[in-house]
Design a protein around this nucleic acid. Sequence first.
DNA 1: CTATTATTGCAACAGAATTACAACAGCATA
DNA 2: TATGCTGTTGTAATTCTGTTGCAATAATAG
Lengths: 149, 149
Amino acid sequence: MAYRAHALARLKEAGFRITTPRQRVIDLLAEVLEPVSAYEIRDHLEQRGARIDIVSVYRILECLEQLGLVHRVLSSGKVHRCVIEAHEPCSLPQTDHCHHSLVCRRCGRIEELHCPDIGTLLARAAENVGFALEHHQLELGGTCRRCAA
Amino acid sequence: MAYRAHALARLKEAGFRITTPRQRVIDLLAEVLEPVSAYEIRDHLEQRGARIDIVSVYRILECLEQLGLVHRVLSSGKVHRCVIEAHEPCSLPQTDHCHHSLVCRRCGRIEELHCPDIGTLLARAAENVGFALEHHQLELGGTCRRCAA
DNA sequence: CTATTATTGCAACAGAATTACAACAGCATA
DNA sequence: TATGCTGTTGTAATTCTGTTGCAATAATAG
């Protein structure tokens, strides 16, 4: 769990204060690892007895995002929910930050597509235009095997 | 504009009724071609003197989505807006349905990445798991050339 | 330990999307 | 062409997400 230390250091060097709510959000993100919405973060924390206002969650996430400690993940299907993913230090494998969702437009089911080649292809394409790629999200729409039958 | 006829036929064969609001939405989508939100659809139609309730727009879009006549596009950056894209008959070029956005996490700017290889790579990967790919959306996060300097 | 000020929490608000229900209109039938 | 069934629409109200203004609080420097 180097994430906590990394995040706190980033905060400090950027002139932000190390507050209790911020530490709680950081710890939760580092523990959960999967994308969570602002409201899910608040609920998780309150279940543990740590009250936090939803407004603070939004502001903390915004701050963490600016510092590159967190990034927004597009929620598949239901579009109007904002989800977040912890952004580990660059030493960690890149694949952790990538999501490839297969969304069937008929039954609505979502599966994950495993395709490591995509990462390298995208990294190269992005590099060509001077873009330093850190993560990517991919949503594939179509018809799944079951519904096609 | 084969889309209108195609859409109406799909509706009919699925047992849906051909109503005035549905035709208006279909015509608008076929004309605009780019992703539009439910509220934008309503506003566009009302500007032309055709009053339609926002609730109906949502229901019509849901219906069209089920039939594969429309699909949702993830809005980059601001996540809580729902956008739609017309789904042309399969004869049209696949590239129309694909979006590759480069989102800089520092300055927030969004550019389009042109990379035709991705489509074929994805189609093959999806095919391997029995998924018939119809469209895809890709969001690339990282640091753009300007902010990296 | 104290003072400064960033940060939090509260309250109110704005916008997106959904639900319940009565009125309406498409379509099959006569 | 008229008529009745029922799928659809529109209205109103509600839920959920996200934002803004402001007073109270707490983190950090000195």
